[in-house]
Design a protein around this nucleic acid. Structure first.
Length: 267
DNA sequence: TACATATGATCAT
DNA sequence: TGATCCTATGTAA
């Protein structure tokens, strides 16, 4: 479930598990054997996240960069120590915790220059240490592509994925097809504010929950089944939770986007 | 058992 | 725009 909220949550958990400890690093699958051997036995100095990227730092030696991509998954922390499977690209273990990584898009070592290049091509991170709404507004003002496509472009804003783009535009009553630069400053500012608020809530809950409890008649909305925790994502053909209009979906930026035709007036 | 699908991103064309 | 990387899960058969 890797949008930005998941990545920041993992950074927090992994920091707690690893920082200050000697870490045994292996690659049961073998594809990261060289990197694992280089890191094995070093002391973790911390873990941090930017957008959907994770950075693991060590008392000395290169930084480990992980990007989960569509399939990548971490297992182990806070659960029973997992058995290494054939697909485990990376295993990190202390005396108290074991983390297994499978299926990542990126699991590699970066020198400082490579990390700098990576970070400079990313837009502002709503969950970053110094959130930068002005940069977000400027990035939108410069683009003619639809806002629904712009939100998936990590150079515009780092950390939003396919679920949040549909949900954020619904919450802000903005039609996905509107050109990014057609948003007023007020709309763009509210979109940024909603992004920060929603990703923070998602990080805290450990899952994407965008519905207002009042709209679903349940105070603990996070406890609802997945398809009831959102307004429009994957709800095409079902009634809008706010107005009852049938939710529609279409392809935008090679992914499926959903929207309510009434709550989000077409341009 | 097989298949469709998935919260991502890059590269070639 | 389409192919590709790669793993897990839910549903159909």
């Amino acid at each position: 479930m890797p949008e930005g909220h998941t990545i920041h949550r993992l950074a927090r958990l992994h920091r707690r598990a690893l920082r200050g400890r000697t870490v045994r690093v292996t690659s049961p699958q073998g594809r990261f054997a060289g990197g694992a051997a280089l890191l094995d036995g070093r002391i973790s100095t911390g873990v941090d996240a930017y957008g959907k990227h994770l950075f693991y730092r060590w008392s000395d030696g290169p930084t480990l960069h992980v990007h989960l991509g569509l399939y990548g998954k971490f297992r182990g922390y806070g659960e029973a120590a997992p058995l290494p499977t054939a697909g485990t690209r990376l295993a990190m273990a202390t005396d108290d915790a074991t983390l297994h990584l499978a299926g990542p898009t990126a699991c590699e070592l970066l020198d400082p220059g490579e990390e700098r290049r990576l970070r400079t091509r990313l837009g502002p991170d709503p969950l970053g240490r110094r959130p930068d709404p002005a940069a977000f507004l400027a990035n939108l003002a410069r683009r003619t592509l639809p806002i629904g496509a712009a939100l998936l472009d990590q150079r515009v804003v780092a950390g939003i994925g396919n679920v949040y783009r549909s949900e954020l535009l619904f919450l802000c009553r903005i039609h996905p097809d509107r050109p990014a630069r057609s948003l007023t400053d007020t709309e763009a500012s509210r979109l940024w504010a909603a992004t920060v608020a929603q990703l923070r809530a998602g990080e805290r809950a450990g899952r994407i929950v965008t519905v207002d409890p009042a709209d679903v008649g349940r105070v603990r909305a996070w406890a609802l089944p997945a398809d009831q925790r959102v307004y429009v994502y994957k709800r095409a053909g079902l009634p809008c939770r706010r107005c009852g209009t049938t939710v529609v979906s279409w392809e935008l930026a090679a992914r499926t986007i959903s929207a309510c035709p009434t709550c989000q007036p077409a341009p």
